[in-house]
């Protein structure tokens, strides 16, 4: 079975939730293992095979000098590199540090900040190396992850749509909570993929999947402003899990430059 492609899963600054999505593929995991060698996945197995790897799934953002060097080695070892999740794709929630003075936080939090080696920013993997495919989400959707692995194995394009969450809401018949309840929702500017979960439970979309393909953030923000949403609230809506995604960063900045 040496001809099976080798899979590696890498962790950078992140919560592990995305790589756990792979372990969460309980029903499909054995089938995945039949077709791919899980060569380097410390979360799943202590057995680690040497690279190079055919498919690397990279979770997490770059927040330390050590990780900044490590990602270069990961790239060198990977034929096909896929980022999984908002951290790896857009810097994650920890990119909120990009709006603040990290040194100041370190002084407050740590008794001996001189032991801490960290960067001033949290940046996506694509800011450091070439990325072959970016899978969005906080966390990613396991079905989309399987689809990406599946597409890789079958040498086809993954069926991952970059359109709005609204299209997913409408397909599942969810009543638009923005129109019918006046609930603030990031759905119209956010990429689909989660299955439009939050609006189905009467919560506005939080924007976990980051900007959709052509997000008109200023129009949505203007409408929400007219509905009575304050600049502070608008800024926070755009500064969550994907605050460093350029379109969300730009829109957040338009509503005041205050920290976070």
């Amino acid at each position: 079975m040496t001809d099976k492609p080798k899979l590696a899963v890498w962790k950078f600054a992140s919560c592990d939730g995305c790589q756990l999505s792979l372990l969460d593929c309980e029903d499909e995991l054995l089938a995945v293992a039949d077709h791919i060698t899980i060569a380097n996945f410390p979360e799943a197995s202590r057995a680690v095979l040497d690279g190079p790897y055919d498919l690397s799934l990279v979770e997490g953002s770059i927040t330390t000098p050590h990780d900044r060097d490590r990602i270069q080695e990961v790239r060198r070892q990977s034929k096909f590199l896929v980022t999984i999740g908002a951290c790896a794709t857009a810097g994650g929630i920890q990119a909120l540090r990009n709006f603040t003075d990290v040194r100041e936080f370190m002084d407050i939090v740590y008794a001996s900040p001189e032991y801490i080696s960290t960067l001033d920013t949290s940046t996506p993997i694509s800011a450091h190396v070439n990325v072959d495919f970016e899978l969005r989400g906080c966390p990613i959707n396991k079905n989309q992850l399987l689809e990406v692995i599946n597409a890789f194995l079958n040498e086809r394009k993954p069926n991952v749509s970059p359109n709005s969450v609204c299209i997913e809401c409408k397909k599942r018949g969810t009543v638009c909570i923005m129109v019918a309840h006046g609930t603030h929702c990031m759905g119209p500017v956010t990429q689909a993929g989660c299955g439009a979960i939050c609006p189905a439970y009467n919560r506005g979309c939080y924007g976990c999947y980051g900007p959709m393909e052509t997000p008109n953030t200023s129009s949505l923000a203007a409408w929400m402003h007219d509905l009575g949403v304050s600049a502070d609230e608008l800024r926070r809506m755009f500064r969550t899990y994907n605050s460093e995604a350029p379109e969300f960063r730009h829109e957040g900045d338009r509503h005041g430059r205050e920290n976070i």
Partner: peptide, 13 residues
Amino acid sequence: EKRCLACGNCTMA
């Protein structure tokens, strides 16, 4: 161009 979100809601509804 400035106003439309290109979200697709109109076409779905």
